[in-house]
Amino acid sequence: MQDLVSLFVKSIFVDNMVFAYFLGMCSYLAVSKNIKTAVGLGLAVIFVLGVTLPANYLLNKYILSPGALVWLNPDYASVDLSFLSFIIFIAVIASIVQIVEMVVEKFTPGLYSSLGIFLPLIAVNCAILGGSLFMQERGYETLAEATVFGLGSGLGWFLAIVALAAIREKISYSNVPAPLRGLGITFIVVGLMGIAFMSFMGIKL
């Protein structure tokens, strides 16, 4: 239990998807102009990461990793399908995003109209595929670990995008040098936020 809590805190702050690995940068920069849309996209990312990571964990454990097919037939112990993982992971993500979109549309139309345009965008958000690939590379051992890692990294991404949107709303009142306006200053602000987040790096959990 303690391991799960520390993994959760670690994936939010220490291994933050945005500041430590730059994942999901494109939508991070494009959709952070105001807080309301940033919150919508952030919630969608938490949700999709929390659903796709356990799904991909099970696929990885029982189908893709070397020798995973033993449960079908002991002769398959030498089969290694891990080269297929990219294509399987992205297919799972794209289809789960599609299903989530349909379910949300059917049962909570209010949430759908606020998330609407962001859900399809998430299929090509690299934070989602990145989460699955990190899960495979770091070899998380239980389903609980994979789920906690997914929710934690989603929450870290959410915090990062809301914080940046807040700063950008303030910055629009400042007198920024003309060539730096908009995109340029946003990059530098994210860099400075990254330096601030580095203060979590030394923490051992």
């Binding site: 730096l180 340029g184 990059f187």
Partner: peptide
């Protein structure tokens, strides 16, 4: 070497480019 410097360098690159292409 740390990650944030890459962002700041890209920011500076954009600054230089936009000073040339007004």
């Amino acid at each position: 070497i740390l990650p944030p410097m890459a962002l700041i360098l890209v920011g500076v690159f954009i600054w230089v480019q936009r000073s040339i292409q007004k």
